[in-house]
């Protein structure tokens, strides 16, 4: 259990009593935790428990209204420059891929390096091709997103996020919108990324992936962290009864 007291110098993300409301609806109810460099954390929990909202506060796609979030030494506030700096350090992969449909695969990947990081086009392109090779779809570089499969689109989305050379990667249910036969090609890319030492926060229902890759599993319910533990403890000896129920339900089917 990592909370503020034992957050170390190695903590790359520190969350301290984070609260968020949608109008009157209290979505995040005091989240305190921290994440270490190169740590892989899987976040799970029932639908509507605030998992997406929580990881989206970390790159400020959602604003928190109370508490503090510090990413790589920068505190998230309304200061636009901080937000832009943090977004360059934090890559995000969405459930619906969110590729830009009017741009080719290659252009999707080079867009941000060229315009935000001011990388030379030729360099950005050769880096993008290397990334595409890493995720195994270099032959589709000049296609439009609509011309490749869902699994391939999600791998492009991962490559696109990696092109900014982030230190942290957020994944929000990256395989939930995929046909079953495509889930593994995406999980394989994520496994490889985990092995490369990336800091990863992954919201997922893929418990096999969690058991294999995660250093720690966070279970959320009703806007709170109910339990967090290494996978062995989490699956084999869960402490909280809501966790027990969730695990028994998820592992059944």
């Amino acid at each position: 259990m990592a909370d503020l007291e034992n957050s170390t110098d190695d903590s790359i993300i520190i969350c301290e009593d984070v609260h968020k409301w949608f109008d009157d609806f209290h979505v995040l109810r005091g989240i305190t935790t921290s994440f270490e460099r190169a740590e892989k954390v899987v976040i799970c929990g029932p639908s509507g428990s605030g998992k997406s909202t929580f990881i989206r506060t970390i790159n400020r796609l959602e604003t928190h209204q109370r508490g503090r979030i510090i990413v790589d030494g920068i505190e998230l506030s309304d200061d636009l420059r901080n937000i832009e700096r943090i977004r360059q350090e934090v890559g995000m992969v969405f459930q619906q891929f969110n590729l830009f449909p009017h741009l080719t695969v290659l252009e999707n990947i080079t867009l941000s390096p060229i315009w935000v990081k001011k990388t030379a086009r030729s360099q950005a392109e050769s880096e993008a091709l290397a990334l595409l090779e890493r995720v195994g779809i270099e032959e589709h570089a000049h296609k439009l997103p609509a011309q490749i499969s869902g699994g391939q689109q999600q791998r492009v989305a991962i490559a696109r996020a990696l092109a900014m050379q982030p230190r942290i990667m957020l994944f929000d249910e990256p395989t939930s919108a995929l046909d079953p036969e495509m889930i593994n090609e995406v999980l394989d890319v994520m496994r490889e990324l985990a092995a490369s030492g990336m800091t990863m926060l992954v919201v997922t229902h893929e418990m096999g992936f969690a058991r294999e890759v995660a250093d720690r599993i966070i279970f959320m319910d009703e806007g709170k962290i109910v339990e967090e533990a290494p996978p062995a403890v989490f699956f084999d000896n869960p402490q909280n009864e809501r966790t027990q129920l969730f695990i028994s339900q998820t592992l059944q089917h």
Partner: peptide, 23 residues
């Protein structure tokens, strides 16, 4: 335009003018 397009653009660090012009 779906919200996901704005979110992806933000997440990649594009500022408002770039997001509007390019995406």
């Amino acid at each position: 335009i779906p919200r996901g397009q704005y979110e992806a653009a933000h997440a990649l660090g594009l500022n408002y003018p770039l997001m509007m012009l390019l995406i």
